[in-house]
Nucleic acid binder design. Structure first.
Lengths: 251, 251
DNA sequence: CCGGCCGTTCCTGTATACAATCTGAACTCA
DNA sequence: TGAGTTCAGATTGTATACAGGAACGGCCGG
């Protein structure tokens, strides 16, 4: 237990990146706060070179912001930034779905999607969903979205979707865990699953407009989840990403 | 003339980044080719640390691709990647225009846009457009798009648009210069300007759907430009970005 | 008492040395 | 002859030393 960063098979750069990201998401580095390289060295236990690399990577991941005079600070997000990021993801996933529909997807390509669909179906059948069920849903949901995005067959589109979804509050499953204690949870999950089913149907029938529209609306479920969670103030500790929100983001 | 990289006021990292990007865009580093740090040091004349930084930045700019075992290679793009990137930009600019329309833009905000519109009007009035006029158009067009994107008031949206437009073949003015010798040039420019006018009108009247649709179609003009230029095979030297296209992009 | 100037201190940007890993080729053995 | 192995070269990942510059505090002058 002499090394601090955990698994020694990872490169120092990746280790530093993970450690710093965890710190930021945990809210231990507050938004707007300048994060010096030396400080990051102390946190991560690696030397300045990989720390520097990790900071650059976190910057274009969107969690850090470069300071003109040099160095980085933790980026501040407004609530609106979050909503816009979700809308942005929905728009791009809508594009991906439309392209998939217009260009056609073979039965072979659709098969894993349908399997995923069935798995989720089975999951949401249980009426009182356990926390473990929510966890499983998050994983399956992520897989479904990834496979769906792949269907468009366009590397640039996939790349951009991944970039947006890398933000902790814009990923398809960002606020799923937050609803695990809400009464509306089960209903929302079933609606989400209906969207999943519809988009596959639309792609199968080459209905590009329908596929696009449903994916856009699908993303907006995340907004509903977020609003519900914020309103009921329940289990906010399940949303570490909210530490990044500032009431008045300077921008 | 002792220094190689040019302006000494820029940081070594930026200098290396510019030099390497120029080399790539000029096609002097072919797509798929591995680019070693030492080689980059030779090219740029700076030491390995800033070179490494520049390589990382060029990777998330999208021009380079990380090799699993370490290092980077010049990214290869298919013709379809280019078309998809343009569609992607159109989709996101459409989102920005829709948001601007839905959220409303004040007369004060719209004023610079209208000025830009008038400037372009004046430019496209000349019937045989000079090469200088095309250059001026590129600048004005870039300004118009930047201001339009800003109108949505959403930092995440603007950020993503900029990331896509950073690709040399996806920017709003990527293929304008290529048409400077085409007979259809003047007509296309006038159509583009009509799109500009329509989107402003739509935003002014809070017609979100119309604003979005016209921006999507507007981006597709770039596809037409590209196709025309490729078909006529004229002035391909005006399109340095095409050096990145490979017939069969390995992906 | 307040504002501007100067020095100190910390921080980032850059260069380079070292270590570990990967690549490639030649050589040997079945 | 072909495949496996081992060794050499090169290349990347990491650490650290050094230099330039910016932020901060104290001091002096008004």
């Amino acid at each position: 237990m002499s090394e601090r960063g955990g698994d020694r098979s990872l490169s120092q750069t990746v280790r530093a990146q993970l450690a710093l990201r965890d710190m930021i998401l945990a809210g231990r580095l507050r938004a707007g706060e300048r994060i010096s390289e030396l400080q990051a060295v102390d946190i991560t236990g690696v030397s300045r070179t990989p720390v520097r690399m990790a900071l650059v990577r976190l910057e274009d991941e969107g969690l850090l912001q470069a300071i003109p005079s040099g160095g980085f600070m933790v980026k501040a997000f407004s609530e609106r930034d979050i909503l816009d990021s979700i809308e942005l993801r929905g728009t791009m996933e809508g594009l991906a779905a439309r392209l998939a529909a217009e260009r056609g997807a073979s039965a072979r390509q659709l098969e894993p999607l349908k399997e995923c669909l069935a798995d989720i179906d089975e999951l949401v059948q249980q009426d009182p969903l356990s926390v473990e069920a929510f966890s499983a849903y998050v994983a399956l949901n992520a897989r479904f979205h990834a496979q769906l995005d792949e269907l468009c067959g366009s590397a640039p589109v996939i790349r951009q979707i991944e970039r947006v979804a890398a933000l902790p509050f814009a990923s398809p499953s960002a606020f799923v865990m937050a609803q695990s204690a809400l009464p509306e949870a089960h209903q929302i999950l079933m609606i989400a699953q209906d969207h999943h089913r519809i988009v596959i149907d639309a792609i199968e029938n080459r209905e590009g407009g329908r596929a696009e529209a449903v994916m856009r609306e699908h993303a907006r479920l995340a907004v509903r989840n977020l609003r519900l969670a914020l309103r009921s103030r329940s289990h906010l500790e399940l949303l570490p990403a909210l530490a990044l929100i500032t009431q008045a983001a300077d921008k």
